[in-house]
Design a binder for these strands. Structure first.
Length: 224
DNA sequence: GCATTAACAGCCG
DNA sequence: CGGCTGTTAATGC
């Protein structure tokens, strides 16, 4: 169980909940920490809880038929995932890997379904999140053909700054070029070059160990 | 060829 | 000092 203050910090969806719903939520959540590089779960695992990132950064990916690792999306602090798997009672479709030291939050199945049944605010959040994710996955179809590394980096950054998935975001994110490369499926050096191109295009600013977004819309459209 | 890995000096905190 | 960055050289598909 976690404190109400902490819940507020790690779960933007809790902000609109009623008091009794918040109580349920915080009692149904436990946290667990993982070192950088650790697998949080493997594809095919039965993990019957809804999962959020309390702190850190994770990669959501899978392995293609040819054995090539494919990254579907990154999730940063405040991101929640796995509602589809829970609602359909399916095994996990993806691997979750911690890109840096990370603390995860797990909401147990019963609590998730209680909120699903009782809270209108919670359902609004889920619908918005589904809709946003759908957009991301549609973009993935084009992603494969889009061989340009810079466009992939740009899109992954834009996803990390998605205002629907993460509320009240600043423009700055502490993330190394290596982590950005791991998310985008390119080497650190390629990520470095791509960042320079994006900086030249005035879409973001490159800093030491981080970036600041200047033009989020431009980033999400880059390479179209 | 092109992108990735390797290697390393320089820089930042 | 440790981690991140920027660049060049070697390597692999």
């Amino acid at each position: 169980m976690i404190s109400a203050d902490h819940l507020q910090k790690i779960a933007s969806w809790s902000h609109d909940l009623k008091n009794d719903e918040i109580e349920r939520a915080r009692k149904g959540i436990v946290e667990k920490s993982y070192p950088a590089g650790a697998y949080i779960c493997h594809r095919g695992d039965r993990l019957d809880s809804w999962t959020g990132v309390s702190s850190g950064l994770i990669k959501l990916g899978t392995v293609s038929k040819t054995g090539k690792a494919v990254t579907l999306a990154g999730l940063r602090e405040g991101g929640w995932f796995g509602e589809g798997t829970l609602l359909k009672n399916e095994p996990r479709q993806y691997d979750l890997v911690a890109l840096r030291d990370t603390t995860m939050a797990f909401m147990n199945n019963a609590t998730f379904f209680w909120l699903f049944e009782h809270s209108a605010a919670f359902n609004r959040y889920l619908v918005r999140q589904f809709n946003e994710r759908l957009g991301q996955f549609i973009a993935l179809v084009e992603y494969d053909r889009m061989l340009d590394a810079t466009a992939r980096v740009a899109r992954n950054i834009a996803w990390l700054f998605n205002p629907v998935l993460y509320r009240n975001l600043g423009r700055h994110l502490q993330i190394s070029q290596e982590e950005l490369g791991a998310l985008s499926g390119v080497s650190r050096q390629a990520a470095n070059q791509s960042l320079k191109v994006l900086e030249q295009a005035r879409l973001l600013r490159v800093e030491h160990g981080g970036i600041t977004v200047v033009d989020l819309e431009g980033l999400s459209r880059y390479g179209e």
